[in-house]
């Protein structure tokens, strides 16, 4: 079906924290231009996949390929250099820096100041509140604003692949809408995405495909529309 190599391919990934095994051989892929969700309950191992993909944790076994090349043991900055950007759980904004400094750091690998300014303007159209707050110190902002800043910072990378971890966690419903609307817009512009979420309802409206993770194993995969109709998904994640 696909002529090109998947943008991201994870094969038989095993991650252990000490004696606790968080992932028991997970395999999944993201095709170029595709948005893919990983759904699952708290503690299913979703965030561990993100940490392994980002280079924040070393897998005990398995491989991670990016555009056909092995990145399993590459440091995080080499992954960023290849076109990956991360919106980690909790945002991880640079807390003592202003909004604008955070955004500039998102484009750390971009040397042309004009490109950086253009991207910053683009981020400000995605999240106008960030423009109002551009001189504000990140730690003094609300959780929702910090999440928007984290997304904005990742967009500053102009990524091929955006990896998003639990972006809706702890957000007021109106902010959840804003955030997912931004993700939808980025997808339309061709950014590939791996979205890890507990909020299955919103996520399935954005992504093409999804995987369901339970206790460190993938138990279900399918197109977004099929997953939405799946009784197991409805019972577990859609409250229906």
């Amino acid at each position: 079906m696909h002529e090109r190599a998947p943008l991201l391919q994870i094969a038989n990934l095993v991650v252990k924290y000490g004696h606790i095994q968080a992932l028991h051989g997970v395999s999944l892929d993201v095709q170029p231009g595709e948005a893919v969700a990983i759904l699952g309950a708290n503690g299913a191992g979703k965030s561990t996949i993100v940490r392994a993909v980002s280079g924040w944790v070393k897998p005990a076994a398995g491989r991670i390929l990016y555009a056909g090349e092995e990145i399993t043991t590459l440091p995080s900055w080499d992954r960023a250099a290849r076109g990956m950007a991360l919106v980690p759980e909790g945002g991880h904004v640079f807390r003592d820096m202003t909004v604008e400094e955070n955004l500039r750091l998102g484009a750390y690998l971009e040397s042309d100041p004009r490109t950086v300014r253009e991207r910053m303007e683009y981020v400000y159209t995605l999240f106008p509140v960030l423009k109002e707050r551009r001189r504000q110190i990140a730690r003094t902002m609300s959780g929702g604003e910090q999440q928007m800043l984290a997304i904005g910072r990742a967009v500053m990378r102009n990524p091929q692949l955006l990896v998003v971890d639990e972006v809706s966690m702890g957000l007021a419903p109106v902010l959840v809408d804003t955030v997912f609307e931004a993700l939808r817009q980025l997808k339309e512009e061709g950014v590939s995405m791996l979205i890890v979420e507990q909020n299955a309802h919103e996520t399935l409206n954005v992504v093409d495909r999804g995987y369901v993770l339970e206790n460190g194993r993938i138990v279900l995969e399918g197109m977004a529309d099929d997953l939405r109709e799946d009784p197991r998904v409805q019972a577990a994640y859609l409250g229906g």
Partner: peptide, 25 residues
Amino acid sequence: TRLGLAWQAAAQDREMAGSVGINLN
């Protein structure tokens, strides 16, 4: 300098500094 910015970022959040592309080593 970029180096100074990188140091500040690494001091505030080392993992994230790596993920924006700063060569921490």
